[in-house]
């Protein structure tokens, strides 16, 4: 269980001349479910976007499986699933088409598995409805169906539970715990008080004096 996937060393981030975080160091090992916590505006999303490679890292270092991130980024992307605030679910595609076009840029997945994933997130019967005609929560679930398709060992999830009902949240939490036991890692932010408190590692932001 000591297999280190991601290591962050003395990471620092400034936005608009304000220091969001500095000297941030932590590791994510295989099997960890890590929650990034902190008040609004403390840089949680920024941190996740930096780690996903969507924002440049100016100060500090990030290592993936012991190698500097900038050198192994293509390998990292093969093992990453990132779900941000903006999910990339297209209004004018059906739930199934959305999931299929997302999966097509990753590992090949059979249609049956895509349909099964949609069923797991409670979209059975809505597979072929346009996302446009679904509720906000259901649209969010289209994006979350990716979790059931993905074999990626490292997930970065930014507020995955937004607009999801209690039962859905419980199912996702169970999925994360199960993934952790299988030796995969999850890094996420959430404002829900997770039931799985005991199993979480935490990274706390927002302790920097302005």
């Amino acid at each position: 269980m000591s297999d280190t996937l991601l290591e962050v060393r003395t990471l620092r981030c400034e936005r608009d001349f304000r220091v969001l975080f500095k000297d941030l160091s932590f590791t994510v090992n295989a099997g960890d479910v890590v929650q990034v916590e902190g008040p609004n505006g403390s840089g949680k999303t920024t941190l996740l976007r930096m780690l996903a490679g969507l924002l440049p890292v100016h100060e500090g270092e990030v290592f993936w499986r012991g190698e500097p991130m900038q050198r192994v980024r293509p390998m990292f992307y093969e093992e990453l699933l990132y779900l941000g605030h903006k999910t990339g679910v297209k209004d004018s595609l059906t739930a199934f088409e959305n999931l299929r076009s997302w999966a097509a840029l990753r590992a090949p997945v059979s249609d049956d598995r895509l349909l099964e994933a949609l069923e797991r997130v409670g979209l059975k019967g809505f597979e072929h409805s346009l996302a446009h005609n679904l509720s906000a929560g259901q649209q969010r679930r289209i994006a979350l169906a990716r979790l059931f398709v993905s074999d990626a060992p490292f997930w970065i999830l930014d507020e995955p539970f937004t607009a999801i009902d209690k039962k859905g949240v419980a199912e996702l939490e169970n999925l994360m715990i199960q993934r952790g036991r299988e030796g995969m890692a999850v890094l996420m932010t959430t404002h829900h008080a997770p039931r799985i408190e005991g199993e979480l590692k935490k990274v706390t932001l927002g302790r920097v004096a302005a």
């Binding site: 996903a52 992307y77 990453l80 903006k86 990339g88 679910v89 209004d91 990753r106």
Partner: peptide
């Protein structure tokens, strides 16, 4: 534009392909 605004572009940028 549309892919940028709804986040689909992000997913393309970080895709292994």
């Amino acid at each position: 534009r549309a892919d940028y605004e709804d986040g689909a572009l992000e997913q393309m940028v970080i895709a292994p392909q």
